[in-house]
Every structure is written in structure tokens, then in C-alpha cells.
Amino acid sequence: MIRSFKLAAFGLAAALGLSAMGDGAQAQTRELTFGEFGPNRGTRAAGIEWLDSQLRERTGGELGLNIIWGGALLGAKTAAQGISDGVADMGSIVPVYAPGKLISYEAADVPQFGDEWVGMRAVHELMNTNEAALAEWDAANMVYLTNYTTGPTQLLSKEPIRTMSDLDGKTFRATGPFVAALESAGASTVSVGQPKVYEALSNGTVDGSTTYYYVMKAYKHYELVDYLTELNMGQVLAFGIAMNKASFESLKPEHQEIVKDLGDDFIDYMAAKMYESRQSVKAELQEGIEGHTVEIVEPDGQMRAELIAIAEKDALSWLDKAADKGMDGDAMLGEFRALIAKYSEERDAKGYPWER
């Protein structure tokens, strides 16, 4: 109870903009509390640190981030509510861990689509322009800022998984449409946040987990498994950074604009890093990290096709969630798919931004 009170008080102080000053000669730096459930390592952590450095640079030192790592302030399952309540000014959120709170954002996970930059760009525009999405963020007392991506979904395991029959009888950590896909092959699934997967693998609760290259390295899962099946299924795009509405509105207008512009620039920065890390982390796992090597398994084509078909069919259950909230899910999905087509065409015509 005492710890919870102290954390809440700390978040409130940050929301009010309390920060240390120099000897009167230096301008005050307001440090916005950023709740991050992941560790201070890996590609995504580097992206958050880039946000901090850019925020300080673009505001002339008037704003910065006080990043609290590893779920010490907000965990994966408490992040959305914590930011909404003002426990942190901003932070990373995954709406699937806050059922019913941000249904419009979950639309981003319906298509099985693997291109990082196209996907991030499409969902960023959707969340900033779709009226139903904007209204839902407002009702949740949050402002959408920018997006992450997991990159294409893979499967780590203690034993090699090459066919659907290899899944039978095993237990995997999985979320969203990947639950139906794995269970269709006779596997059992459990839902835990990525920070808890290491423990679940260590104590034998799970035999493996749906994963992404950057996650496997950042959370050191390579210490506990020997195989990664390269499924290359869809990415998780309902995964980004939000800000408490009151904290955002307390910023000066010019700082609000800087924060929103920075969120836009973050898409290109993070997409490039995720794209590059897929190749580099794969090579590191094969060569060995800290004495641990991971074999990359190529599944048979039928297995991949079946899992994708089941995942896509299951993901369409999102339409029922949208209807329950009075949203036109078909229209929103149509708009999202049109944005995917728009940015796919831009990529094909101009290449990725970091290649131009």
C-alpha cells in the first residue's frame, strides 16, 4: 500500500511538471514521466531514448522524459489505465491488455500484414484522423502520440516446430488471433505479458511463445530455448505511445505541436530500426549470444498458410467488439486497408524513407 501511494504521488508530481532547477540561472526542464514495461535494452528502448533526446533538443531543454523502465511504474497490463489516471504522463500501451478500452486501436491487428513501415504509417494516420478513434482516445482520457511495431510474428520453442502436428500437446504464450491459430493444432495457450515470458519458460509453464526478433534478444529468451520457427505472420500494430490528456493539454501550444510532430517522425525512425534489427538479430541468434545459439527453423508452407488463414478469420471477431461500442467496424477496417494500400504504393514508388 505504501509503495502504491508513493508511486501514485510520484506520477502526480510529474504530471504537475515538478522538476529540479539549477542555481536560478538555468531554465527549468519539465521531465514528463514515461512508464515503460520493457527493459532498458533492445531496439524499442533505443527508440524511447531517441524520443527523450529529440524532445530535449527540439524544446531547447524545456521538456524531457523521465523514463521508468521494466514495469517499475506501469506494467503491460496496467499501462493504459495508469496513463489514463495520470500515474504517468505518458508511456507504452498495448490495448489487448486493457479489454474494451481502445477498441478502435485494436483494428490495427486485424490484417495479417508484415511490412513494418507501411503498417506503422497506416495506423498512425488512422488514429489521428478517424473520428471514432479520436473520440475513443478522448473518452479514455488519453492522446495518441505514435506507434511501435513488433515486426512479423515468429514462434520460439524448446523443441523444433516444423509442422502443425509439432504443436499438438504443447503450451505456448500467445495473444490475439494467434491463440486460435495455435489451439487449432492442439496446442494450449496462456496469456502473459512479454516481461513474464522468461519466467514462464524457466519454470516450464510454457514450451514456447509467439515472439519477434527484437523481443527475443531484449528479454534474453535465447538463454532458455534452442529454436525459433520463422512463421513471418502478421505484426502487432495496436502497440504504441499515449499521453495523459491533462498532461498533454498542460503543455504550451508550441510544445504540443512539437510532441505531435515528434510522434510522426518516430514512425520513420522506429520502422527503420525494426527493419534493420530483424536481419541483425537473426544473424546474432544463429552465431550465438553470450554462448547461446538458436536454430532458425523453416516451417513447411502448409503450416504457415493454415495458421495465417485461421488467425485472419479469428481476428475478424473484432467486428463484434466494434459493434458493441457502436462503431462501424467495416468502415474502419476499409479505411485502414486503404491506408495500407496508400503507403504500399508510396513505398513501391519511392522506397522506404531511409533509402531515399
Results as ranks from 00 to 15, higher is better:
1 M>F: 04
3 R>D: 05
4 S>N: 15
4 S>L: 11
8 A>S: 11
9 A>I: 04
10 F>T: 13
14 A>E: 12
16 L>M: 06
25 A>I: 12
28 Q>E: 11
30 R>M: 00
30 R>Y: 01
31 E>M: 04
31 E>I: 00
37 F>I: 00
40 N>W: 01
42 G>Q: 01
42 G>D: 03
46 A>M: 13
48 I>Y: 15
49 E>G: 09
54 Q>A: 06
55 L>G: 09
56 R>C: 07
58 R>E: 09
59 T>H: 06
61 G>T: 05
63 L>M: 11
65 L>H: 07
68 I>C: 12
69 W>R: 00
71 G>Q: 08
73 L>G: 07
74 L>S: 13
75 G>K: 13
80 A>H: 11
86 G>M: 02
89 D>S: 15
89 D>K: 05
90 M>K: 08
91 G>Y: 04
91 G>P: 08
95 P>Q: 01
103 I>D: 14
111 P>I: 06
114 G>Q: 07
115 D>E: 15
116 E>I: 12
117 W>E: 00
118 V>N: 00
120 M>V: 14
122 A>E: 10
123 V>G: 02
126 L>R: 13
130 N>L: 06
131 E>W: 03
133 A>N: 11
135 A>T: 10
141 N>W: 03
142 M>L: 15
145 L>Q: 09
146 T>K: 07
148 Y>I: 00
155 L>D: 06
155 L>R: 00
158 K>Y: 05
167 L>D: 09
168 D>V: 07
171 T>I: 07
173 R>G: 07
176 G>R: 14
181 A>P: 01
187 A>N: 09
189 T>H: 10
189 T>K: 10
190 V>E: 09
194 Q>S: 14
195 P>L: 14
195 P>M: 14
197 V>Y: 02
202 S>R: 15
202 S>P: 05
208 G>C: 00
209 S>E: 02
212 Y>F: 08
212 Y>V: 04
217 K>V: 03
225 V>K: 03
229 T>L: 07
233 M>L: 15
234 G>C: 06
236 V>C: 09
236 V>W: 03
239 F>N: 15
250 S>E: 00
251 L>F: 00
252 K>L: 14
254 E>W: 08
255 H>R: 10
259 V>Y: 11
264 D>Y: 13
269 Y>W: 13
270 M>W: 05
271 A>Q: 01
275 Y>V: 06
278 R>H: 11
280 S>L: 06
281 V>A: 04
281 V>C: 05
286 Q>L: 13
287 E>D: 10
289 I>C: 06
289 I>T: 05
292 H>L: 09
292 H>T: 10
294 V>I: 15
295 E>M: 01
301 G>F: 04
302 Q>D: 08
302 Q>P: 03
303 M>H: 00
309 A>W: 01
314 D>T: 14
319 L>D: 03
320 D>K: 04
321 K>G: 04
321 K>D: 14
322 A>P: 08
328 D>G: 10
332 M>I: 12
339 L>Q: 10
344 S>H: 03
346 E>D: 09
355 E>A: 12
356 R>K: 10
